[in-house]
Design a protein around this nucleic acid. Structure first.
Lengths: 332, 332
DNA sequence: TCACCTGAGGTAAGCGCTTTCCTAGACCGT
DNA sequence: ACGGTCTAGGAAAGCGCTTACCTCAGGTGA
């Protein structure tokens, strides 16, 4: 492993000069030396040790990202936005999957803290009991206390910079759409109640129920997990238990796709509306009506927030939801 | 930012002792001291500086991953496998998107090298002209020369440890399947010729053509990119130009989904077979026959290779492909 | 001619940690 | 009581860099 000292020796200069030449410092250097140093770099295949650099200049550059799971399309799209902005800012984004496990999240926060990242963006945490939430907040504060910046995506407990997808409004839009089409007997297949996503979307939905003066019996909200197979299972329960239901509102597209799959194996004709408008929505049959959230933009905004100077007051940005109508919903 | 020295001072011990206690070194330490140091850590919210640690212990722990794009389902699944193994080994995986741009790849290799990663895994590089390939190889060698390990996924030019999905065999299986079903007039919608994936799958397909004594005129291989919309475009060309075609072989599932979409807007009944068996394959209509590649396993194997000791000779592992039949192909 | 700049380049002090080597006290046997 | 052996803990030397500060030419003006 060639070091700066090797390069300097090889070129017959001091490490100071070598460092200045390699990093393009403003200090003027004779062209002859510059050439010699650059030649030495090439010959020794010198690559500076990033850790030593970080330590010496003690300025933070990388940023950390903690998401539920990058492979999940929802987070993949958010992550894309995050990365794009980080990269445009010349920063390495270290991305970590928490799989919604608070301990992992905790662990990663410390890891990123230890790696001296300039900022941490968190999206899609799991359920937090008061105790865990407190510990997490504690770690986050500790990180902030050292000058680190934090931005979260869609988490209420956090008091700090955040960008919030308007899940409540989205829930309202979805339910309103079904009511407008004349569906009165609807069922909801939802993710775990502990996720704020679930909570908020349900809240909007209930607002629509009230506004349209409909009923939504509690047992018609079936909880499962936010996956395709979770959607299949939940839909099977709905079909078995509620023969009167004519529309299913799925709280995300994965579940909606599962609903469509379950429906395919039954003789019932039930409308389905999803949430998130993932790319697949166009390609299932029938194509899926969904509530679109501009996830890439969500990520971009969050990263920009994280990279901006800390303000006096916490900044919260909202991202609007929008209905995309396709073939899986129709007028009754 | 609390440092180890702060903790030591606060606890009234030397940094040596503090370090030993915090890292659980085997050296015995009095319980009283241990307690004091741990208390100081908690009180000062001390988080060790990972860069300083790396520098001091000069042993590499993190691993680097360079893929085309984590958001792409194909690479998402590979990445999942990579991460799983890295994490099981207690290592942070730094993952980077190259977007198939060789310069980015080059840049990331140096970045990871600079960050002293123990190993680099590369999957899904783009087209490499001889010159770029040489430069890339040069950087890779430089990294290896410092003790770094490298594993690549499915790249022929690389001589070193590799895991190769059996794309050739997969191409053969796909075409053979269509021929067995009685389809003689087939068309292929393919990704960029520069990608080895394309190249290998086509090679297998040609082998099937020879074995079954069929014909596949060159113009019936339509190149586009490996995306859904690329599939739509390619399929539209096929439909317009080749009225005799009864089956389309798509070189990945994204394109196959696009083909299905294009077909939906036409009155032709054409069989479609995809490649990769992504999760969506089950949920499109008709459900998609595809050639399955165990991508997660692919990733796991690659990471294991990268984390194992370097051998004398390059090791190459092969991953078998398997046909998954669904509704999008039928006997003619 | 001399004191004084100016600027190219070097010296060395850290950055925050780990770890080798050393010290000094405790304990042992005789 | 004394030399010898442990052992807990500390001193300090790096790890590979950056950068503030210093040096020593050569060039300037009076």
């Amino acid at each position: 492993m060639a070091t700066l000292a090797d390069v300097a020796r090889h070129a017959g200069v001091s490490t100071a000069t070598a460092s200045r030449i390699i990093n393009g410092s403003p200090k003027p250097v004779a062209d002859a030396l510059r050439a010699r140093v650059l030649a030495a770099v090439a010959e020794l295949k010198y690559v500076p040790n990033a850790h030593a650099q970080m330590l010496a200049r003690s300025h933070r550059s990388a940023v950390g990202v903690i998401v539920h799971d990058v492979s999940d399309p929802y987070f993949a799209e958010i992550t894309r936005g995050l990365q794009r902005v980080a990269e445009a800012d010349g920063r390495l984004a270290i991305i970590c999957n928490s799989y919604r496990q608070p301990d992992r999240e905790l662990e990663y926060i410390d890891l990123l803290h230890a790696h001296q990242v300039a900022a941490i963006v968190i999206a899609g945490s799991g359920y937090l009991d008061a105790d865990t939430a407190a510990r997490l907040d504690d770690r986050l504060r500790a990180f902030e206390a050292t000058g680190g910046r934090i931005a979260v995506i869609g988490r209420h407990e956090h008091t700090g910079d955040a960008v919030m997808p308007d899940n409540e409004e989205g829930g309202f839009l979805a339910a309103a759409h079904l009511f407008e089409l004349g569906h009165t007997e609807i069922a909801v297949i939802a993710g775990p109640m502990a996720l704020t996503t679930t909570y908020d979307r349900l809240a909007g939905l209930r607002r629509a129920v009230r506004k349209y003066r409909r009923k939504l019996p509690k047992e018609r909200i079936v909880h499962s997990d936010f996956t395709r197979d979770g959607g299949v299972a939940a839909t099977e329960r709905v079909l078995a238990e509620f023969p009167e239901v004519t529309a299913i509102l799925a709280l995300n597209d994965s579940m909606a796709v599962g609903a469509l799959a379950a429906l395919r194996g039954s003789d019932r004709r039930v409308a389905v509306i999803g949430f998130d408008d993932m790319p697949i929505a166009r390609d299932v049959t029938p194509s899926l009506t969904s509530v679109r959230l501009p996830l890439t933009e969500l990520g971009e905004r969050a990263m920009r927030l994280a990279l901006s100077e800390a303000g006096d007051a916490p900044r919260v940005e909202h991202i609007a939801a929008e209905l995309v109508q396709r073939e899986s919903t129709w007028a009754l």
